[in-house]
Amino acid sequence: MTDVLRTPDEHFRDLPGYPFAPHYLDDLPGSEGLRLHYLNEGPRDAPETFLCLHGQPTWSYLYRRMIPVFTAAGHRVLAPDLFGFGRSDKPTDDRVYTFDFHRESLLRLIQRLDLRNITLVVQDWGGLLGLTLPLEEPGRFSRLIVMNTALATGDVRPNAAFYAWRAYSNAHPNMDVAALLRRASGRVSHEESLAYEAPFPDARFKAGVRAFPRLVPTHPDAPGAEVSRQARDWWVVQLHVESFMAVGLRDPILGAGPMRLLRSVIRGCPPPLEVAHAGHFVQEDAGDEVARAALEAFGLAPGGR
Rank of each mutant, 00 (worst) to 15 (best):
residue 271 P to Y: 11
residue 224 G to V: 08
residue 203 A to L: 04
residue 221 D to K: 14
residue 210 R to V: 11
residue 275 V to F: 03
residue 183 R to N: 15
residue 303 G to N: 02
residue 273 L to N: 03
residue 76 R to V: 11
residue 232 R to K: 09
residue 109 L to N: 07
residue 304 G to F: 00
residue 23 H to N: 15
residue 161 A to K: 12
residue 218 T to L: 10
residue 75 H to T: 09
residue 100 D to V: 06
residue 65 R to F: 13
residue 240 H to L: 08
residue 270 P to G: 08
residue 147 M to D: 00
residue 4 V to Y: 12
residue 75 H to W: 14
residue 26 D to E: 14
residue 157 R to S: 10
residue 19 P to R: 07
residue 173 P to K: 08
residue 248 G to F: 05
residue 61 Y to R: 02
residue 110 I to C: 04
residue 2 T to W: 10
residue 221 D to F: 11
residue 207 A to H: 01
residue 30 G to Y: 05
residue 291 A to M: 00
residue 182 R to T: 12
residue 75 H to V: 09
residue 34 L to S: 00
residue 255 G to L: 06
residue 175 M to A: 15
residue 186 G to F: 01
residue 207 A to L: 10
residue 262 L to C: 06
residue 183 R to P: 06
residue 246 A to E: 11
residue 303 G to H: 14
residue 51 L to G: 10
residue 94 D to I: 15
residue 170 N to R: 15
residue 117 N to R: 12
residue 185 S to V: 04
residue 176 D to A: 12
residue 216 V to M: 09
residue 8 P to T: 03
residue 29 P to W: 01
residue 271 P to E: 15
residue 233 D to V: 07
residue 98 T to F: 06
residue 158 P to Y: 04
residue 28 L to T: 05
residue 1 M to R: 15
residue 166 R to E: 03
residue 206 K to Y: 02
residue 38 Y to R: 13
residue 180 L to V: 14
residue 270 P to H: 09
residue 263 R to S: 10
residue 13 R to C: 12
residue 147 M to V: 01
residue 179 A to W: 02
residue 257 G to S: 10
residue 61 Y to E: 01
residue 189 S to D: 04
residue 57 P to R: 13
residue 249 L to V: 09
residue 109 L to H: 03
residue 9 D to K: 11
residue 148 N to S: 06
residue 297 A to Y: 07
residue 179 A to C: 09
residue 217 P to H: 13
residue 85 F to N: 00
residue 295 L to S: 08
residue 37 H to E: 14
residue 9 D to P: 03
residue 57 P to D: 14
residue 305 R to Q: 13
residue 68 P to Q: 11
residue 93 D to Y: 07
residue 266 I to Y: 01
residue 291 A to W: 05
residue 222 A to H: 05
residue 133 L to N: 08
residue 206 K to V: 03
residue 240 H to K: 10
residue 126 G to F: 01
residue 35 R to I: 07
